[in-house]
């Protein structure tokens, strides 16, 4: 079967305060009409700063949260319409790994039991011995000693815990994994180990990743394509090298210039954005970035007309003036 593995159309996720006596406040428009595709064996990175909605996208498409509206097709199946049992079956195909290596493992469960959980739930092993064997093989695959199976999570470092979380996700042999900031909480040297592991696993198993991150330098090591989010919208998407070498949206340019490069000789001029991120419950009208934009051509149009993603120089960019470079500093 060809065609993309996952197609997401017009995904919307709003959070309203719940409860009988909760004040009626404007909903938080975390994700506000997001569309993208992920191909087989492909990594799409969803990049943005806190509050841009990237994690909500990840959690919604694997139905850990219910979407407000929109559609998602996974291997042709409409995910958001699945009833309980077909949804459980889908869990074998789509998995998630988390950012926080501490909260993502049950402190009262051995490593072996954590990794075996998916095997147990989906009855993927006929005997206890077979289950044990598979757990050992999974631990080995993520670079851990199989003897760790009988230990508890608190005995392990952040990087090791992250590997355990990866083994747990792999246990059900998924085709697609949402990686929700999987290396953000790790030290640099360990971060590189986990990035390499994820790359190896992708190659070996033909996995597809939705890689959610805030660090463009990390993303560059693993993503085939990048989608940049700002206040619930994708504002630019392009193949990785295109986006990094020729960013078309002013926000992408600012984000890129803010990445600290460990090289004193190559200190690029920085674009320092002014002001704070507006509240996602009352995003600015028109282009959501206009309140902080530094594009020389920015105009009344930006304040009133929402720019749509459109092809510009090999990227898709949601800026009315994407043809003109926003800043001579950008590259």
């Amino acid at each position: 079967m060809s065609g993309p593995l996952l197609v997401v159309r017009d995904l919307v996720k709003h959070y309203t305060s719940e409860g009988l006596f909760a004040a009626r406040t404007a909903p938080v428009r975390a994700v506000d009409g997001v569309s993208f595709e992920v191909g087989r064996g492909e990594t799409l990175a969803l990049v943005g700063e806190s509050g841009c909605g990237k994690s909500s996208v990840g959690r919604t498409i694997i139905r850990l949260q219910e979407p407000t509206s929109g559609e998602a097709l996974f291997e042709g199946q409409a995910i958001f319409r699945l009833e309980r049992e077909p949804l459980r079956a889908l869990r074998r195909r789509m998995q998630i790994i988390f950012q926080d290596p501490y909260s993502s493992l049950n402190p009262r469960m051995t490593v072996g039991d954590a990794v075996a959980e998916g095997i147990e739930i989906h009855r993927l092993a006929r005997t206890k011995a077979e289950r044990k064997e598979r757990v050992a093989a999974l631990l080995e695959e993520v670079g851990l000693d199989p003897s760790y199976a009988s230990r508890y999570p608190h005995e392990f470092s952040g990087g090791q815990r992250q590997r355990i979380g990866i083994a747990r996700a792999l246990a059900v042999e998924p085709a697609f994994i949402v990686c929700d900031e999987p290396v953000s909480a790790l030290d640099v040297s360990v971060q590189a180990q986990v990035i390499n592991l994820l790359r190896d696993l992708q190659e070996r198993r033909g996995l597809s990743y939705l890689f959610i991150a805030h660090d463009l330098a990390v993303v560059r090591q693993i993503a085939h394509r990048i989608a940049v989010m700002y206040l619930g919208h994708i504002i630019e998407t392009a193949p990785t090298e295109t986006l990094l070498s020729d960013p078309r949206h002013p926000y992408t340019q600012a984000l890129l210039s803010a990445v600290p490069e460990p090289d004193p000789t190559a200190q690029r001029a920085r674009i320092v954005l002014s002001g704070d991120l507006p509240s996602p419950s009352s995003p600015p009208p028109g282009c959501r970035f206009h309140t902080r934009c530094f594009h020389p051509l920015r105009s009344e149009r930006c304040r009133s007309e929402v720019p749509l993603l459109r092809p510009v120089h090999g990227s898709l960019a949601a800026c009315h003036y994407a043809e003109t470079p926003a800043s001579p500093l950008a590259h």
């Binding site: 959690r59 694997i62 850990l64 949804l87 459980r88 079956a89 869990r91 074998r92 789509m94 998995q95 998630i96 988390f98 950012q99 926080d100 909260s103 993502s104 493992l105 049950n106 469960m109 954590a114 959980e117 998916g118 739930i121 989906h122 979380g165 747990r168 996700a169 246990a171 059900v172």
Partner: peptide
């Protein structure tokens, strides 16, 4: 906690 999320994502 994410470990509860993870269990749900596994179909528990």
């Amino acid at each position: 906690a994410d470990f509860v999320r993870a269990a749900e994502a596994l179909g528990a």
